[in-house]
Design a protein around this nucleic acid. Structure first.
Length: 208
DNA sequence: TTCCAGGCAATAC
DNA sequence: GTATTGCATGGA
């Protein structure tokens, strides 16, 4: 399946490096060093939860609201009332559910260490046990917040593979993930860029 | 006005 | 195990 590498090459040629994951709405093309502390790491996780079935532009509004009130922080988030979180994240939709998800995740995050130099990388299984964290969100957190080579599959990914006639369309999340991971070098920087490029491709498709 | 966006859990069959 | 349905705001 050399197609996947060729597909990547064509996407990067067309769209260029994407600079994911944006921190404080800033993209850093070609720089894969972020996050470099726990606050940045937490912000990525929060964004991953808020963007579930939601356009990123609405997520930015919610993140800005949380930041202004000091709640883009695991300690403050964990002790905040769900209603208060819900008010601040309203623009990102599903705010009742997402407020609960964020609080649950904040506690989990804290349980893995509060110090920049003493914070454990969570296992995929334990992320999936958290209410509100499914396979895509878990892989997004592992890839973008923890720099682990876990390929992220989303709705655009399936759409692109269908478009390229690489799949039939009835494949599961895990099957699609394996397809990428078994046919590409196990490199978090490559996975980072590839998923971001697929999203960029998807956004452009919608315009046509 | 309708449709959908960087999904997930609950429920139904 | 696979198919539906509710969750919700804001922009096109």
């Amino acid at each position: 399946m050399e197609k996947l590498q060729e597909l990547y090459d064509s996407l990067i040629k067309k769209y260029g490096r994407q600079g994911w994951w944006p921190i404080n709405n800033k993209y850093r093309p070609g720089n894969y060093d972020y996050p470099n502390n726990n606050l940045e790491r937490f912000e990525i996780c929060v964004g991953a939860i808020l963007t579930q079935n939601t356009s990123w532009i609405n997520v930015v509004k919610a993140l800005d609201n949380l930041r202004k009130k000091g709640l883009l922080d695991p300690h403050n988030m964990s002790i905040a009332k769900e209603e208060r979180i819900g008010e601040l994240i309203k623009p990102s939709g599903y705010f009742n559910q997402k407020a609960k998800k964020l609080k649950e995740f904040a506690w989990f995050f804290l349980s893995h260490g509060t110090d920049d130099n003493d914070h454990d990388v969570p296992k995929r299984e334990e992320l999936l046990e958290i209410w509100g964290i499914g396979p895509e969100t878990a892989d997004s957190i592992l890839l973008y917040a923890y720099k682990k080579p876990e390929f992220v599959i989303d709705a655009y990914t399936k759409s692109l593979l269908l478009h390229e006639r690489i799949i039939k369309g009835d494949e599961s999340y895990d099957m699609l993930k394996s397809l990428f991971q078994e046919n590409l070098p196990k490199d978090y920087k490559l996975y980072n860029e590839y998923h971001a490029l697929i999203v960029e491709w998807g956004k452009n498709q919608a315009k046509n």
